[in-house]
Simulated assay, not measured.
Amino acid sequence: MTDDRIRVRPAAQEDAAVLAELNAFVHDLHVEERPDVFRTATGADELRTLFRSFLARESSLAYLAESGGRAIGYVTATVHRRAGDVLTRPRNFAAIEHIAVDPAAARVGAGSALVEAVRVAAREAGCTSLVTDVWAFNKAAPAFFEDGLGFAPMRHWLEQGL
C-alpha cells in the first residue's frame, strides 16, 4: 500500500547530488558483500558525475520519491531497443538498474511507487516488458520484486571464480 504523502517525480540533472546520497543505502550493502565487484566512491563529486551522466542519456528513466519535503528513494532504469536477429525476436524493454529507499522510510510504498513510475514511462516508450536483476546476497530484493510487484524469474546467472 502506498502512503498518500509520497510523491514521485522525474529526476533531473539538479537531483544528481540527492541520487548520490540515496545511493549509499543500497550500495554500502553491495560493497560489504562483494568488495571484489563493488567499491566505495572516492567522493561525492564522483557519484554526482556518475548520476549526471546517466541522466543525460536519452534512454534513461529516473524518478525520485519524496515525502515530508525530502527525498526518500530513487529508481533508475534504461530503455533498451533490440533489433532482433536470426535467433531472437525484436524487443523493447526497460531494465531497472538501481533502486534505493531510505530505511527510515521503508515499507510505506515508496519502492512500489517508484517501480510503477518506471512501468508507466516504459509503456509510453513502447516497451513490452520490465526487467531487473538482483544480487544473491540481497535477500530482500526477490521478495520485493516477485512477491510484492509480480516480477517472475526469467533466467539465472551463475558465477565461478578463476
Rank of each mutant, 00 (worst) to 15 (best):
L130M: 06
E124L: 04
L19P: 11
A20W: 01
R5F: 11
I99R: 09
E146Q: 07
A122W: 03
R70H: 04
A140P: 05
V101I: 07
C127E: 04
V37D: 14
V18Y: 13
V108Q: 11
A140D: 02
F25I: 13
V134K: 10
A94C: 12
E32C: 10
P103N: 13
R9W: 13
G161Y: 00
Q160A: 11
A71V: 01
A71L: 01
V120C: 06
L61M: 08
F137T: 14
K139I: 01
R7D: 09
Q160G: 05
L114I: 11
A17G: 15
E116Q: 14
V75Y: 07
A140N: 03
R9Q: 12
R107I: 04
H30G: 14
E146Y: 10
V120L: 08
V115Q: 12
R9P: 12
A110H: 00
R7M: 14
R9A: 12
R52W: 02
S67R: 15
G68K: 13
H27G: 02
A141I: 02
F51K: 06
S67Y: 00
M1R: 08
A94M: 11
N138F: 05
R155C: 15
G161T: 03
W135S: 15
S53D: 04
H98N: 12
R48P: 02
Y63H: 10
E66F: 00
A41F: 01
A117S: 13
G69H: 09
T88M: 03
P142L: 08
L149F: 11
N92C: 13
T42Q: 01
F151K: 05
Y74T: 00
M1V: 08
M154F: 09
R89S: 04
T128K: 01
L61R: 05
V120T: 07
N23F: 11
L162P: 04
A24R: 14
A83Y: 06
P90N: 04
T128R: 03
L29Q: 14
D28K: 11
E159C: 10
R70T: 08
A121K: 07
D36A: 15
N138T: 09
L64I: 12
S60Q: 05
A136V: 15
T132N: 09
P35R: 13
A104I: 11
L149W: 04
F137D: 12
E124G: 07
P35G: 14
D28Q: 14
R48D: 08
E58R: 05
R119D: 12
R57I: 02
V8T: 14
G150K: 03
L130F: 03
E21R: 15
P35A: 13
N138I: 11
A104C: 09
V86G: 03
S129R: 02
A117Y: 08
E58P: 01
N138K: 05
G84H: 04
E33C: 10
R52Y: 02
F51Q: 05
V75E: 03
I99K: 05
T128E: 09
T40M: 01
D45I: 07
P153M: 03
V79E: 09
G68S: 14
N92H: 10
V134F: 15
F137C: 14
A11K: 07
T88P: 00
L162I: 08
A105M: 06
I6H: 00
I6K: 00
R119F: 04
W135H: 15
L22P: 10
A12Y: 02
